[in-house]
Design a protein around this nucleic acid. Sequence first.
DNA 1: CGGCTTGTTATGCAAGCGTATAAATACGGC
DNA 2: GCCGTATTTATACGCTTGCATAACAAGCCG
Lengths: 212, 212
Amino acid sequence: MAERRKFRREGEERRRQDLIEATLDCVAEHGIEGATLRAIALRAGVTAGLIRHYFPGKEELLQAAYATIVERMTQQAFDFLDDGATTPRLRLAAFVAANLTLPIADAKVFSLWAGFIGRAHADPALSAVHREGYLGFRDQLEYLLAETFASANRPQNAGALRRHAIAVNAIIDGLWIEGCMAGDLFETGELAQIGIETVGRVLGIELEGAGA
Amino acid sequence: MAERRKFRREGEERRRQDLIEATLDCVAEHGIEGATLRAIALRAGVTAGLIRHYFPGKEELLQAAYATIVERMTQQAFDFLDDGATTPRLRLAAFVAANLTLPIADAKVFSLWAGFIGRAHADPALSAVHREGYLGFRDQLEYLLAETFASANRPQNAGALRRHAIAVNAIIDGLWIEGCMAGDLFETGELAQIGIETVGRVLGIELEGAGA
DNA sequence: CGGCTTGTTATGCAAGCGTATAAATACGGC
DNA sequence: GCCGTATTTATACGCTTGCATAACAAGCCG
């Protein structure tokens, strides 16, 4: 009667990552309130008590999960920039487009973002994670813009560059949200095209053509 | 001993509104998970059981609260447009600025928005409320843009107008989020100025000067 | 191959949740 | 002034949650 469940011992890092991944799945599917310790454990294939062996409490697990998704989003947005050494304006155009198409502009990713953002106001630790991600994103974007302006022989001073980064970041974020929340209202690739066109106009640099 | 609490009977509409307002306060302060029936009732100055007398369940109360805040935000954004019969481009500039300053660009309002957005994915009713608000906002914005283009002798066809509305909506939303989440990173009025400047460039219409 | 460590399961607990229901009281109509 | 009604309070129930702890076994070390 009541046979005890068989199990395997996993490496510490592996288990932690599995638990984080299970947490992200739960948040994405049923919102942050669907991410109970029992649901997370079930999805990770362990029992709930084990979580306390790897994280001091639920809060720390959520923070780790949020940090993971923030880093992943920033990573996905930028890592392809190293692909081809094309011109800065093509790289910028590709960057904008990448942020407005899969896998970044995805309902599941947005669900994660929204779930955590809602909690960030009540949890300073989550808020700090968000700010770090935001500033990191904007810094890298600023560098990308500096390259583009330089290639167009229109170097900008620090203040102008910062304001441009703020504006372009807003365009990307805003379109990203529109696409995630109401993707069915737009044709495939429409938001990416609008994004490239809009950013181009804001910078005064044509991004759409092949452009050297 | 154990005196029963005194109370006053309020009109139905008044009580419903009080409960909704208390719900919004709770969500704004401690996130949507802080909006328990007991906390809401405490803030509204009643006992928890009463809520069930005015709403079938907690879900319906949350939906009513979300509908209220969505309508309020849209209202605040547009009602001042009737103030002075100035030129369309001044009206547009004022509209952009209004969305990026108090009381719309406010941490509490954002906290509400974020709290509900996080739940919208799991609750189709909330999702519908959001979409209605979004489309309403965009429609009114589109009308504002049409006026502005007309006054500049550059009428746009329906498709171009729609794309412009999508882009401008994204700029406003994106800057709004930046301001709400990291307001301390910007000077007073800086985001409004960036917004006006950016929208002007996207439309190809100068919005900053007095401009007829 | 037997013991030790510790990753893992199993069980329990107190608190808080949304909901249901009965008792009480405020207040308008007579 | 009193009665009837329905708003409001009070209490309880069943469930779920995060957390604590004890029992157990997997796998390494000798």
